[in-house]
C-alpha cells in the first residue's frame, strides 16, 4: 500500500497479443494504489534539503477502498513534536469534475478544519513528495504512450491533458512486467529538462501483494530528496468506513494509535 506514496499510476499499450492499454493501465493503478480492500502502514519520511539539513516525519496511514476508484485515507502524525496527534484525512475522488475532500484535525484547538482542495502538486508535509504521490493521479489526466520496452519493464511516456495544471511537461514511468508496480518515474520540466525522479528502492511481497517498502524522490532542480520507509504493512484488516469521519478525527481510533 505504501505504493500510493509512490506516485506512478499510468501505463500504455504494449505490442502484439499482450494486454490492451486499458488493461495495463488499470493493472498498474491497482498494483500501486489499491492492493487489498484496505491497508495500513507506518511511514517514516526523511527529508534532506539541498544544504544537507535533515527533517523527519512519522505517521500511521490507513487506507480504505470505497468503490469505483474512490478511497479514504487517514493519516495520524506521530513526529515531529509540533504536529504530533494531528490528523489529515482525504476522501479521494477519481471521477472527472469531482474534487477530493480533505480535512485537518488540530488537537490543541480540538478543531476539525476542511481544507480547500488546492493544487495536488503541492508538497506533502514539506517533503519532496506531492499530494498526488500519496493518493494517486487519475488515469484520465494524462495521455499514455509506450515509449520503450525491456525484458522486464514497460516504459510509458505520459503527457498531461491539461499542462497548465501541473509542474511537468511529461513523465516516463518504468513498470515491472511481473508485479506491475511502477518502479521509476522521471519528470521533465516545461523546457524538457529532467527535474524530478521517483523510485521504488525496495519491494517486498506482503500477504501476496508486491509492496514498495522504501521509496525515494529526488528534486534534481533544487537538490533535495526524501526517502520513505514503510513498516508494519498490513492488508485487509477490516477497517470500518466510519473511521473516516469527524468522530474519529476528534477521537483517533485504536487502528491509528496502537
Amino acid at each position: 500500500m505504501k505504493n500510493w506514496i509512490f506516485a506512478i499510476t499510468t501505463l500504455a499499450v504494449c505490442n502484439g497479443f499482450a494486454l490492451t492499454v486499458d488493461e495495463i493501465v488499470e493493472k498498474a493503478n491497482q498494483a500501486a494504489y489499491y492492493a487489498g480492500s484496505d491497508g495500513q502502514a507506518d511511514v517514516k519520511m526523511v527529508i534532506t534539503d539541498a544544504t544537507g539539513g535533515e527533517r523527519t516525519r512519522e505517521f500511521r496511514i490507513l487506507r480504505l477502498n470505497t468503490g469505483a476508484g474512490s478511497q479514504k485515507f487517514y493519516v495520524y502524525f506521530k513526529e515531529p513534536a509540533d504536529v504530533r496527534q494531528q490528523v489529515f484525512m482525504v476522501w479521494k475522488e477519481v471521477e472527472q469534475g469531482k474534487d477530493d475532500s480533505r480535512w485537518l484535525f488540530l488537537p490543541a484547538l480540538n478543531l476539525v478544519k476542511p481544507i480547500a482542495p488546492g493544487d495536488k502538486r503541492t508538497s506533502f508535509v514539506g517533503s519532496d513528495f506531492v499530494y498526488e504521490d500519496v493518493s494517486g493521479r487519475a488515469l484520465w489526466e494524462d495521455t499514455h504512450e509506450l515509449s520503450g520496452e525491456t525484458e522486464t519493464q514497460y516504459l510509458i511516456k505520459n503527457k498531461p491533458n491539461n499542462p497548465d495544471a501541473v509542474d511537468f511537461s511529461e513523465y516516463t514511468v518504468a513498470i515491472d512486467k511481473t508485479t506491475f508496480l511502477p518502479v521509476k518515474a522521471e519528470y521533465l520540466d516545461k523546457n524538457g529538462k529532467l527535474f524530478r525522479r521517483v523510485e521504488a528502492v525496495k519491494i517486498e511481497t506482503i500477504q501476496g501483494h508486491p509492496t514498495v517498502t522504501e521509496s525515494r524522490v529526488e528534486d534534481l532542480a533544487r537538490g533535495g530528496r526524501t526517502i520513505n520507509f514503510f513498516s508494519a504493512v498490513i492488508y485487509d484488516t477490516g477497517l470500518k468506513e466510519s473511521i473516516f469521519t469527524e468522530r474519529f478525527l476528534r477521537r483517533p481510533p485504536r487502528e491509528a494509535t496502537k
Binding site: A116, P117, G118, D119, R121, T122, S123
Partner: peptide, 10 residues
C-alpha cells in the same frame, strides 16, 4: 470563502 490562490498561498 477559502481558496488556494496560487500554489502554497491560501
Amino acid at each position: 470563502y477559502e481558496h488556494e490562490i496560487i500554489k502554497d498561498l491560501t
